[in-house]
Simulated scan of single mutants.
Amino acid sequence: MTPDQAVKDLAATEIQPRARVLAMPEYHPPLGHRDRLRLDFNENTLACSPAVKTALENISATDLTRYPEREPVEALVANYLDVAPEQVLLTNGVDEAIHVLCQAFLDAGDELLLPVPTYTMYEIYASSTDATLRKVQAADDFRFPFESLLGAINARTRIIAIANPNSPTGSVATREQILAIAQAAPGAIILVDEAYFHFYGQSVIDLVGKVPNLVVARTFSKAYGLAGLRLGLLAGPESLLRWVRRVLSPYSVNSVALAALTAALKDQSYIDWYVAQVKQARAEFLSGLTGLGLDYWPTEANFVLVNIGATHREFVAAMREQGILVRDRSADPGCLGCVRITIGTPEQMRTALTAVESFLKSNPAGASK
């Protein structure tokens, strides 16, 4: 065989991934062209702390030549959370936290229990393993399906993922419910994802190390406004996190992100101010939706799920034309006709409410069920 023929034969060969990767769902976030009022991804709608900006400006060219060291910053985070340093693991966003947890603990024959609708990436990362994903559908009121979830626990249950507050619904599981689930599934990791904790104010992170199968995730993408730097964490017993560290890259959290996080943690007053702004705006916006006759679900997060109905696509397009981005969640289980709207500052949400009202006036059949 000539070299040219060998090259042609190789070019015709297609290498396939594992069967699970072929079968797993894909996630394509609708990013790009987001130079509008960003009420679509539950981000901080203003900016990060000014202290973060100063810290970034002080990073030298020499600083960037060194590999990142996460341990000193993990110690700072641990002190902030009032847990031991070995009980904290910083990750490249909560996405990586979910990914490595699945890689460390899900094997063939295992099950991940997932209340739905919820954050898409639990399903994505679980589907990349040889475990089985088992969904537990919430009722029409989107309350946390506590009884159904308890009934789904079995000997194969290895991870139970609970977003608290949940996205896209804004619903919550109570502390008592989480403890009951942990007791009912002692052989499973109970992952409580508290990405939206600041807007809810209640946490189970104080139970880390006391409940041996509890792991809590947090993000610095939402209230802290560091989504572009990709920072998250897992807090859990050292006996569990040691295995997660084994499958985690030692350099997945970069030096720039670590410097920003150090500054952000020292400026809690900024976080308190921003969260207060969002809570005020949430109350005003929900009251406005009620006044417009729109149905929505109670929320403890920095977003609200609104039932727009048959005109949901037109609604999203109309809001974009008015310079406001919102997220169509109709493809989520049980969410047909639903649109999720991030809550920003009071001024931003007054602008958004005016746009919603304009849509309804120009679409008399809008929000039809």
Rank of each mutant, 00 (worst) to 15 (best):
M1R: 01
D4P: 01
L10M: 08
A11N: 13
A12W: 02
Q16D: 00
L22Y: 05
H28R: 13
R34K: 04
R34Q: 08
R36L: 14
R38A: 10
L39M: 14
T45H: 04
L46Y: 03
L46E: 08
A47H: 12
C48T: 14
P50A: 12
A51E: 15
V52P: 08
K53C: 01
A55C: 03
I59W: 07
S60F: 07
T62G: 00
L64V: 11
L64T: 12
R66S: 01
Y67N: 13
E71F: 10
E74C: 06
E74A: 12
L81V: 00
D82C: 11
V83N: 03
P85V: 00
V94S: 14
H99P: 00
V100L: 04
L101P: 02
A104E: 10
A104P: 09
A104M: 08
F105E: 11
F105G: 03
D107T: 11
L112K: 03
L112P: 03
P115L: 07
T118R: 04
T118Y: 11
E123L: 15
S127L: 01
T129Y: 05
K135R: 15
K135L: 10
D141Q: 13
R143E: 15
R143H: 14
G151R: 14
G151E: 15
A152Q: 12
R156A: 14
N164S: 07
N166W: 08
V172W: 00
A173K: 09
A173Q: 11
T174H: 05
T174K: 06
R175T: 07
L179T: 00
I181F: 00
I190K: 14
H198V: 01
G201C: 06
V204D: 00
V208K: 03
K210S: 13
N213G: 04
N213K: 03
R218C: 01
T219G: 08
T219I: 03
S221E: 13
S221P: 07
R230Y: 13
L231S: 03
L234H: 05
G236F: 01
R242N: 05
V244W: 13
R245H: 07
R245F: 04
L248D: 02
Y251D: 04
S252G: 00
V253W: 07
V253P: 09
A257W: 06
L258W: 09
L258A: 11
L258S: 10
A259E: 12
L261S: 09
T262E: 14
A263W: 07
A264C: 11
L265N: 09
K266S: 14
S269Y: 01
S269R: 10
Y270N: 10
I271M: 13
V275I: 04
V275Y: 02
K279W: 00
A281T: 01
A281K: 03
F285D: 09
S287F: 02
G288M: 05
L289R: 02
G293W: 08
L294I: 12
L294A: 13
D295N: 09
D295I: 09
T299P: 06
A301H: 01
F315D: 02
F315Y: 14
M319S: 09
M319E: 11
G323Y: 08
R327T: 10
S330H: 12
A331D: 14
A331V: 10
G334E: 05
G337L: 11
R340M: 15
T342L: 10
T342M: 08
Q348Y: 09
R350M: 04
A355Q: 04
K361E: 03
S362L: 06
P364E: 07
S368H: 11
S368L: 10
S368F: 10
K369R: 14
